[in-house]
Nucleic acid binder design. Structure first.
Lengths: 141, 141
DNA sequence: TACTATACCTACCTTTTTACTAGGCTTTAT
DNA sequence: ATAAAGCCTAGTAAAAAGGTAGGTATAGTA
């Protein structure tokens, strides 16, 4: 039940764009350095996000990325789903054509879990995260 | 964010024991056939469950497994956590000693997600699943 | 007592996924 | 013209997933 690093990085990048891209665009190099993530790996994640309409790019020197919408119009669910491919806890919820005997009696549990996850993640926008962090809560664990 | 087959099988086995182990014990061979799961693989999962106090075994001929408690005293969360090792969506929630820069600002999202997942799964017992299926709801998707 | 059915244990193995790295091509501001 | 950016495709090492194989230990039954 782990979120992959791809999903975590995607969300992290989007948040970085929300914070640092208010005027103009942000170079991937800077994001990679700020967040301590491999730039080359990030490139692939950007390509993923780019294929949908979530970010805009500016090519050439002084180019970079920026958000396609305001931060309040992205949910965490949308971004994670894009990066991860799916948020469903079991295959059958995405691909009903391949039922497994072992899951038969448990489908309602999996469906409920799926709802619990998506309901929560759809309830949080990038703006919510910005606001939350602005309030000075430190989540040092 | 997928539940592994190990987790799905573990829950499935526990449910099978709840249904078929009311009098005496249940042989793994029968469970494997009923649920269409490799018996050899199930052996390993039973060993996992056995190390905690969740099932009892009867060795020798006519032996098998039975639940250690009544079905209403198992939550889905407990079983899945045992099989999967953890239900946390990111490593840091289990191992706070290895913080990643990229997750810093997102910890509250991950903690909330973790809570959403465990709250849901702790709210469902094996008995709840039995009752639900007894009501004749078919979850054919 | 022998036989058989069961659980238990350890090792190995194949495939898939993850998380990158490498290197070149394209675009554009200066 | 040059340099700084993004774009694209391929390769790859390590880990995890999902098993298989084969033997040992235990106990009920004939």
């Amino acid at each position: 039940m782990r979120i992959s690093t791809k999903g975590r990085y995607a969300l992290c990048v989007m948040l970085d764009l929300a914070q640092n891209g208010t005027d103009g665009c942000v170079a991937l190099k800077d994001i990679a350095e700020r967040q301590n993530i491999s730039k080359k790996y990030l490139e692939q994640i950007m390509a993923l996000l780019n294929r949908q309409d979530v970010i805009k790019t500016v090519r050439g020197a002084q180019g970079g990325y920026k958000l396609a919408r305001t931060p309040d119009r992205y949910t965490v669910a949308e971004i994670l789903k894009l990066a991860e491919g799916s948020l469903a806890p079991i295959d059958e919820l995405d691909d009903p054509s391949a039922p497994q005997a072992a899951d038969w009696q448990l489908m309602y549990v999996w469906q409920g879990l799926y709802s619990a996850i998506t309901d929560y993640l759809e309830g949080i926008t990038l703006q919510d995260i910005l606001d939350h962090n602005a309030q000075g809560f430190d989540y040092i664990i």
